[in-house]
Design a protein around this nucleic acid. Structure first.
Length: 299
DNA sequence: CTCGATCCCTGGACGC
DNA sequence: TGCGTCCAGGGATCGA
């Protein structure tokens, strides 16, 4: 499940392996995750991939301007353009030799000028792909919050402590911060000892400071480990990440907390599984909709 | 503003 | 072995 560290890993890998290559042609399979499939076929051939960048959980393949033949009317191809790619849950984007057999669920083939193919594989097709220029591209990228690795302490605290939504929902909200997903939200909340259902406005300044710090630390360490591979994440070299070995909360329901040995629990917050330690991360006094259900648990 | 519900989609885990 | 069921979840959208 690609979140910021996984997307950063893929983007860095692609920057190394395909930046500077020219796209010769595009072959499409299933296209229901592509904004305008015909636009890819029309505008990508002949374009050079100048750079691969990450924006939140998106990747931007920056494209060279299209060459205009003499007397040809400009149709927008001369404007700065990018291929926007979101990997969704199961997307993979990686170059390979053209002779390589196709993996199942390969939906897009970009033939490159060095004989390789950049292929997009996505079993569940929760990803997204779009060719965007100028104003449309800019419009797509507004409404996102700050990058969690860049956000200042003041901006982070302000955007969290001004909100009544639960902190887990806020961390997942891409208009608050761009790039955090379920894994790194839970991991950072565990490290900051903050319950996922605590309201943003209930966080003290110190807690906000701590949360930003551990979030950045977790993300940076995860990038160094080339991301987390839970089920199927592979980077641009087809290699899994290693950070799942360092998870302390995510996916650990029923196991012991690494800090206090209490049993890690799971609740749904904002429709997502949220793993936390009930002892290290004390529940808020009056969770938004949580009755203090004192269920007697059979030990 | 914030929430839950619903949908998209397939593979994998699990129970019988 | 095979089948049915449930679950995973990022994001869009709708209604409350």
């Amino acid at each position: 499940m690609p979140e910021l560290p996984e997307v950063e890993t893929v983007a860095r890998g692609l920057q190394k392996s395909i930046a500077g290559r020219r796209i010769l042609s595009v072959v499409l399979g299933k296209t229901d995750f592509i904004d305008d499939p015909a636009a890819l076929e029309q505008h990508l051939p002949g374009r050079q991939i100048e750079a691969v960048e990450r924006y939140g959980k998106f990747m931007l393949l920056r494209l060279s301007p299209a060459a205009l033949s003499a007397g040809e009317a400009t149709n927008g191809d001369a404007a700065p353009a990018s291929l926007l790619v979101h990997l969704g849950m199961t997307g993979q984007l990686a170059p390979c030799a053209a002779a390589e057999p196709n993996a199942k669920h390969t939906h897009v083939w970009f033939r490159l000028d060095d004989g390789r193919e950049l292929r997009y594989v996505d079993p569940r097709r929760f990803g997204r792909m779009a060719y965007l220029t100028g104003a449309l591209l800019a419009a797509e990228l507004t409404n996102f919050g700050a990058d969690p690795l860049q956000v200042s302490a003041q901006e982070f605290a302000q955007s969290i402590r001004s909100r009544s939504a639960r902190i887990k929902a806020l961390l997942l909200d891409q208009t608050v911060l761009r790039g955090v997903g379920n894994i790194y939200a839970d991991e950072s909340l565990w490290r900051a000892k903050i319950h996922p259902e605590r309201q943003g406005a209930q966080l003290t300044k110190k807690q906000a400071t701590t949360l930003r710090k551990v979030l950045q630390d977790v993300l940076q360490k995860a990038i160094l480990a080339r991301g987390s591979s839970i089920s199927d994440f592979l980077d641009a070299e087809g290699q899994p990440g290693e950070y799942q070995r360092r998870h302390r909360a995510y996916g650990r329901e029923g196991k012991r907390c690494f800090r206090c040995a209490a049993t890690i629990r799971r609740v749904l917050v904002a429709g997502r599984s949220s793993f936390f330690c009930p002892k290290c991360q004390p529940a808020p006094r009056s969770p938004k909709r949580g009755r203090a259900k004192q269920k007697t648990r059979n030990a």
